[in-house]
Design a protein around this nucleic acid. Structure first.
Lengths: 342, 342
DNA sequence: CTGTTAGCGCGTTCAA
DNA sequence: TTGAACGCGCTAACAG
C-alpha cells in the first residue's frame, strides 16, 4: 500500500486528466456517467483521500475551527467542547483547542497560532483582551463567536458592535429567580449570597441578578449575608461560608456564584453542625458533574453546557455562510434543578 | 489593514526575492545582516505571519497533532488533554481533538479525518479497532502513541509490534498493592473488590492486580466479596455495592475499579447505615476531581493524568524526531492517596 | 550571499 | 464533456 495516493495518480489510472478526476469526484462540473463511474471505482480501489491541506490552500477554507477556553481541564468547558465538536463534526469540521488561562498574553498567542493555521472560525469563551485587540489579531473578517458567561439583559450592543461578533450567553436571571422563588415557596426568605472575587465574571453579574430577583420577590437583601469567595473553588467557598456563618445572624439559605463554592458551603455547614437543608439551604450554579455526587446532592441552576455548545456551533456556521448577516446574540434559559440541598 | 499580507509582499517591499525573505526570517540559510534587518523590519511593520497551511503543504509537516479520546466530556481525559497541549504547545504544535465514544466506526472516521488533514502524529486513548486496522487507516509511517489504560506487567510486545506504536500506561499493580498494604496496616484484611462490566478494560486488569496484591500480602480473596458493576458510573457502582452488602458476610473494605463506582459505594454504605471508614473502608481509582469533593473525601489511587499527558507528548515528539527508533513503552507509577474514606 | 525555478496537491479558470 | 495551464503561499534545489 503506497504511502499517499494523490488525485493525479487516480486520474492517470482512470485515463483522464486530474481536473476531470477532480470534477468527477466533487461533482463541481458535469462529467460523463462512464468516466464518473471509472474514476470512482479507481478512487475506491486506491483508497484515495483528498489532501485537505492542499485543498485548504487552494480553496482558502480549511474546514477547521478554533475553540479557545480558559482551561479545558476545568469542569464546565469539556461539555461545551463536546457539543461543539458533535455539531460541527456533522458538517466536516474539526476543532483545534487552545487554553488561555484567562491571560491576555496567552490569548494573543493562541489566536495568532490559530489564524496562522487559517481556521475558518473562532469560538472564544474568555475575553481577557479588549474587543479591538481581538479583532486586530484574528483579522477583520474572521467569523467569531463569543461565549459570554453572563447574559446582560438585552444583548450588549457595545461589545457586539465593537467586536463584530456573534454572542452566546445564558440568561442567569431566569435561574436565579427560580431559585429565590423556590426558597420562598418553602418558606425561607433569609437568603444570602456568595459571589466570586470582586470584579470577576460571572460572580458579579450573578450577584446583581440575585439582588434583582430578591427585589422582584419583595424580599430585602441583608448585606451581612453577602460574602465574596476569593476564588471559584471549594476551598475559598468554604472560607467564605465560614466567615458568613460565624456572624451574629445567619441566613437560612445561601446562593452561590458557582457549584464549587456551593460544595465548599456544604462542607462548612457540616463542620458548623448545620443540617442541610433543614437548617441551611444551599444552591449552586452550573450543575457540574460533581453536583450529583456530593451529599446531599446539590440543588443548583443548570448552566446548559451542551446547548451553549450547540448554539455556538450554529452561530459560527451561520456566520460562515452569511458573512454579512447582522450579528446575533443567543440567550439560553437557565433553570433550577431541585436536589437534596435546598 | 490589508486582509492577508504574504511573504512576497514583504519581499517586494524589502526589495529582495521571496526566497531571500524566507531565508532571512527562518534563518535556514545565511543572509547579509543588512537585508536581514530590513526584512525583519518590514515583516514587523506589516505584521507578517507565515501561512502555516502553505508551509505545511510545502514541508509536508503541519505542526498539528490529533488527540482521540472516547469523550472529552469524561472526567479523566481533559486533564490528559491539557497536559498534552501544554507540552506540545511549547514546541509550536496545536492539537485537534476527536471523540470516538469507544466505537470502531467512529474511530475510523475520525482517524481518516485527521489523516486527511496531514497531522504529524496521533495520540489515541481508546483502541476499539484492531491494530492492523488502525495502521491501515493512518498509514504505515504516522507517529502513533497509545494510551493503554492498564499496564500489563512488562510491555505488551504483541500490541506494540503489531501496531508499531509507542505506548504510555500506568502501573496499576503498584497503587493497588499500596492500597492493600494500607488497609492491612490498619488491621483490615477482609477486602472486597468491585470491577467494571465483564471483559472491559480497565476493570478486569485491576481486578487481576488486586488478586496479585492480596496473594503477595498473604491474604485470601473471598469470592463472595467480588462484584461487577454494570458500568463505570455512580449508579451501577451503587447497585453493585448494594448487592455485595446484602450478602450474609460483609467485607470491611471495598476496592473499586474507578472513582465513580467508589462514590456509588459511599452512597450505598450511607443508605445501609454503615459508617465510612470505621465500619467500611472504600478506595477508588483515578482520583478524579470529584474525589476531593465527596464526603468523606475519597481515598483513592492516583492515576496521574498530567504525567500521562506529558509522557504521551514526549513519546510523540521523540518518534517524530527519530522515526526509526525502537518503540518505547512508559509505565507511570500510581500511588495511594489516603483521605477520609479508608 | 542572492535570485530563479519548481513544485507540495489540489481546484479553478480558459480554451478546445 | 474534457484537458492544459495556472496559482493558492511557501520553501527547497539549483544556479549565479
Amino acid at each position: 500500500m503506497s504511502l499517499e495516493v494523490g488525485l493525479k495518480e487516480v486520474a492517470f489510472r482512470a485515463g483522464v486528466s486530474p481536473s476531470t478526476a477532480s470534477n468527477a469526484l466533487s461533482g463541481a462540473r458535469p462529467v460523463s456517467e462512464q468516466t464518473r463511474k471509472r474514476v470512482f471505482a479507481i478512487a475506491e480501489e486506491l483508497n484515495y483521500r483528498p489532501n485537505l491541506v492542499a485543498r485548504g490552500l487552494r480553496r482558502q477554507e480549511t474546514r477547521t475551527i478554533a475553540l479557545l477556553v480558559a482551561d479545558i481541564a476545568n469542569p464546565y468547558y469539556p461539555a461545551v467542547a463536546r457539543a461543539i465538536q458533535d455539531r460541527i463534526g456533522a458538517h466536516g469540521y474539526v476543532s483545534f483547542i487552545g487554553n488561555t488561562d484567562g491571560d491576555p498574553k496567552a490569548e494573543v498567542r493562541v489566536l495568532e497560532e490559530m489564524r496562522a493555521r487559517s481556521v475558518d472560525g473562532v469560538i472564544m469563551s474568555t475575553m481577557a483582551l479588549s474587543p479591538e485587540r481581538i479583532r486586530n489579531v484574528v483579522g477583520p473578517t474572521m467569523p467569531l463567536v463569543l461565549i459570554t458567561g453572563e447574559w446582560v439583559e438585552t444583548p450588549n450592543p457595545h461589545v457586539v458592535r465593537k467586536l463584530r461578533a456573534d454572542e452566546v450567553g445564558t440568561d442567569d436571571a431566569m435561574g436565579i429567580k427560580e431559585a429565590v422563588d423556590h426558597l420562598r415557596g418553602r418558606g425561607v426568605t433569609d437568603i444570602g449570597f456568595i459571589s466570586g472575587p470582586a470584579g470577576s465574571v460571572p460572580g458579579d453579574g450573578r450577584l446583581e441578578r440575585f439582588r434583582d430577583a430578591m427585589a422582584e420577590a419583595g424580599l430585602s437583601v441583608n448585606e451581612a449575608w453577602i460574602e465574596q469567595s476569593a476564588g471559584y473553588v471549594l476551598e475559598t467557598g468554604y472560607d467564605a461560608a465560614d466567615r458568613l456563618l460565624s456572624r451574629p445572624s445567619r441566613p437560612k439559605a445561601i446562593l452561590c456564584a458557582n457549584d464549587l463554592i456551593a460544595i465548599g458551603v456544604l462542607e462548612a455547614a457540616r463542620d458548623n453542625k448545620l443540617d442541610v437543608p433543614t437548617e441551611l439551604s444551599v444552591i449552586g450554579f452550573d450543575d457540574i458533574p460533581t453536583a450529583k455526587h456530593v451529599s446531599p446532592r446539590l440543588t443548583t441552576i443548570i448552566n446548559p453546557a451542551r446547548l451553549v455548545g450547540y448554539a455556538c456551533a450554529d452561530a459560527l456556521m451561520r456566520r460562515m455562510e452569511h458573512p454579512d448577516a447582522p450579528f446575533e446574540h443567543t440567550a439560553l434559559a437557565t433553570h433550577l434543578v431541585a436536589r437534596g440541598s435546598a
